Simulated scan of single mutants.
Amino acid sequence: METLLLAEVEVMLERYIAATNTHDFSEVAKLLHEGAVYWFSDRTCTSRAEIQAYFEHAWNVVQDEVYSALDVQWIAVDEHAATCIYTYHYEGWINGRQASGKGRATNVFVKQEGVWKLIHEHLSSLE
Score class of each variant (00 low, 15 high):
V115D: 11
S125T: 14
A99V: 11
V9W: 01
K30Q: 13
D78T: 07
V72H: 01
D24F: 13
H122F: 06
K117H: 09
S26H: 08
M12N: 05
A105W: 06
K111N: 01
A18Y: 04
S26G: 02
T87M: 08
V110M: 13
R48K: 14
T3K: 14
T106K: 09
N107S: 14
I51R: 00
A53Y: 00
K102S: 13
L13H: 15
A7H: 03
Q52L: 05
H120G: 05
W116G: 00
E79R: 07
S124H: 02
E2F: 13
C84V: 06
A19Q: 00
T3V: 08
Y86A: 14
L123M: 14
V66W: 04
L118K: 03
N95C: 05
K30N: 09
H120E: 11
W74D: 03
W93Y: 11
V11P: 02
V62F: 10
L32M: 12
Q73M: 10
Q112W: 08
A29M: 02
V62E: 00
E65Q: 13
E27Y: 06
Y88T: 04
F25C: 03
T22A: 10
C45P: 01
E91M: 05
Y16E: 08
D64G: 08
Y86H: 14
E2H: 15
R104L: 14
Y86W: 11
S125N: 15
T83R: 13
Q52R: 13
E113N: 14
H89W: 10
V61L: 14
D24I: 14
K102L: 12
D64M: 10
Q52Y: 03
V115G: 04
R104T: 13
L5K: 02
S26Q: 12
R15P: 00
L5S: 00
N107R: 13
S47D: 05
Q112K: 14
A99Q: 08
M1Q: 03
W59V: 01
A82I: 10
Q52G: 03
E91I: 02
Y38V: 03
V28W: 06
N95A: 10
T87A: 07
H122S: 07
C45F: 01
L32I: 02
T83Q: 10
S41D: 15
Q52T: 07
L32W: 09
I85Y: 08
W93C: 06
V37T: 05
A49I: 04
A81P: 04
D71L: 06
R97G: 11
F40N: 08
S125W: 15
